[in-house]
């Protein structure tokens, strides 16, 4: 199971980094989403991987799993979801105003050619 979780995190992160390095905002948003999945999985595994054990006190449980990473993941999911919504709105705004969805700044921003 460790191998499966570790490689899932690795593949998700690699794909996310590739997508984030693209210059179009759609690919970047997808990349950010994947990165947050990878991070959530990683956070989940920081309390060690335990199968079939409850996180809170229950009668007759032979072992427990660490509940804190689960709480952290929950927080991270909520924040990540909100942030994705914000970045989508911002990218839409920039697309509507600027006419294209490039992430990098045009050269006229720094007072270069075109101004």
């Amino acid at each position: 199971m460790e191998l499966l979780v570790a490689s899932a995190i690795g593949i998700l992160t690699a794909a996310a980094v590739y997508l984030i390095l693209r210059r179009r905002s759609f690919a970047v948003v997808l990349g950010m989403t994947m990165l947050s999945y990878a991070i959530n999985l990683f956070l989940f595994s920081t309390g060690r991987l335990v199968r079939g054990a409850p996180p809170v006190l229950s009668d007759g449980a032979p072992a427990y799993t660490d509940p804190l990473p689960q709480a952290l993941v929950l927080t991270a999911i909520v924040i990540g979801f909100g942030m994705t919504a914000v970045v989508v709105m911002m990218a839409l705004g920039a697309f509507v105003e600027g006419g294209d969805d490039r992430i990098d700044m045009p050269s006229r921003d720094a007072g270069g050619a075109g101004e």
């Binding site: 942030m83 911002m90 920039a94």
Partner: peptide
């Protein structure tokens, strides 16, 4: 708002 400001914001957010 404004084009450059929104573009810069997207970069900053990402």
């Amino acid at each position: 708002g404004g084009e450059m400001r929104l573009r810069a914001s997207v970069q900053y957010v990402v």
